[in-house]
Amino acid sequence: MARVLLAEDHEIVRRGIRSLLESYGDWEICGEAADGPEAVRLAIQERPDVAILDYFMPKLNGLQVVRQVRKVLPQIQILMFTQHDNEDLIRDILRAGVRSFLLKTEADEHLIRAVNALSLSQPYFTARASEAMLASFISSRKPAPHLTARERQTVQFIAEGASNKKIAAELGVSVKTIETHRSTAMRKLGAKSMAELIRYAMRHKLVEP
């Protein structure tokens, strides 16, 4: 019996996913998380076979969760829920080791098959996802400037409306360190204002529009 972790910040959506999986009968739901740090903690604690992650979660998004979890559990099979088949997003999550991603509109039709494939250590992609992957592969777009993991977290928190003091408390660092991360991120991105920094976060799916 495969053990499955659910990470989704909307409780009603989480209930729906759990109900759908439990109706299948062959999987154990070993944990539920409502934000990114909780997803990391539960994944390391429970060591599930499959993790189902929403991309847009508070504090850490799904991609950041994947990167942290796979450092400890490299064999974990991960399904990412997204709302957009954005080329940059697809490229990033595949590079991070995600083995399946579904648009939320596809969940009813494909979730069971996707989790079943992952429980057998097989990837699963829908036709729509495959088309988006192909477009990403052949795209010649200039890559975005590289931000460190902490810089991306800082930008995400800023876009979510958090103050420097709150970000510092969440990340366990000083306010001065957060100010440095913010300044460095703005310099790398060529952002001249906080509004431009927030637009970057939305464009690159660090936060939900």
Rank of each mutant, 00 (worst) to 15 (best):
1 M>P: 03
1 M>K: 09
4 V>P: 12
4 V>H: 15
4 V>I: 15
5 L>S: 04
5 L>K: 03
13 V>T: 11
13 V>K: 06
13 V>I: 15
14 R>Q: 08
15 R>F: 14
16 G>A: 14
19 S>K: 14
23 S>V: 04
24 Y>S: 12
24 Y>V: 09
24 Y>D: 09
26 D>N: 13
28 E>F: 15
29 I>M: 08
31 G>L: 10
31 G>K: 11
32 E>M: 09
38 E>T: 11
38 E>Q: 10
40 V>W: 06
42 L>K: 00
42 L>I: 00
44 I>S: 03
44 I>M: 05
45 Q>E: 08
49 D>I: 03
51 A>S: 09
57 M>Q: 01
57 M>G: 01
58 P>S: 00
60 L>W: 07
60 L>K: 02
60 L>G: 02
62 G>N: 08
62 G>K: 02
64 Q>R: 07
65 V>H: 03
66 V>R: 02
67 R>V: 04
67 R>L: 11
68 Q>C: 15
73 L>P: 02
75 Q>S: 13
76 I>R: 00
77 Q>R: 06
78 I>A: 10
79 L>Q: 01
79 L>A: 00
81 F>K: 02
82 T>F: 03
83 Q>I: 10
85 D>Y: 12
87 E>N: 11
88 D>N: 10
94 L>H: 04
94 L>C: 06
96 A>I: 05
97 G>Y: 01
98 V>T: 08
98 V>Q: 12
99 R>V: 09
100 S>R: 01
101 F>V: 07
102 L>G: 00
103 L>N: 04
104 K>R: 13
107 A>S: 07
108 D>M: 02
108 D>E: 11
109 E>M: 14
109 E>Y: 15
112 I>D: 04
113 R>E: 11
120 L>I: 07
121 S>W: 03
122 Q>A: 13
122 Q>R: 15
123 P>T: 03
125 F>R: 01
125 F>D: 03
126 T>H: 01
128 R>D: 15
128 R>W: 14
130 S>V: 14
135 A>L: 12
136 S>R: 13
139 S>C: 12
143 P>E: 06
143 P>K: 03
144 A>I: 00
145 P>H: 12
146 H>Y: 11
146 H>R: 09
149 A>I: 12
152 R>I: 15
154 T>Y: 06
157 F>C: 13
159 A>R: 02
160 E>Y: 05
162 A>Y: 12
164 N>H: 07
166 K>M: 13
167 I>E: 10
169 A>R: 05
169 A>C: 07
170 E>S: 09
172 G>E: 04
172 G>A: 06
173 V>R: 00
175 V>G: 03
176 K>A: 14
178 I>N: 02
178 I>F: 10
180 T>C: 10
181 H>L: 01
182 R>D: 05
182 R>I: 10
183 S>N: 14
185 A>S: 01
188 K>Q: 06
189 L>Q: 00
189 L>C: 04
193 S>Q: 04
194 M>G: 05
195 A>D: 10
197 L>G: 04
198 I>M: 09
199 R>Q: 09
199 R>A: 08
200 Y>Q: 00
200 Y>M: 00
201 A>S: 02
203 R>E: 08
204 H>W: 08
204 H>D: 14
205 K>I: 11
205 K>R: 10
208 E>A: 10
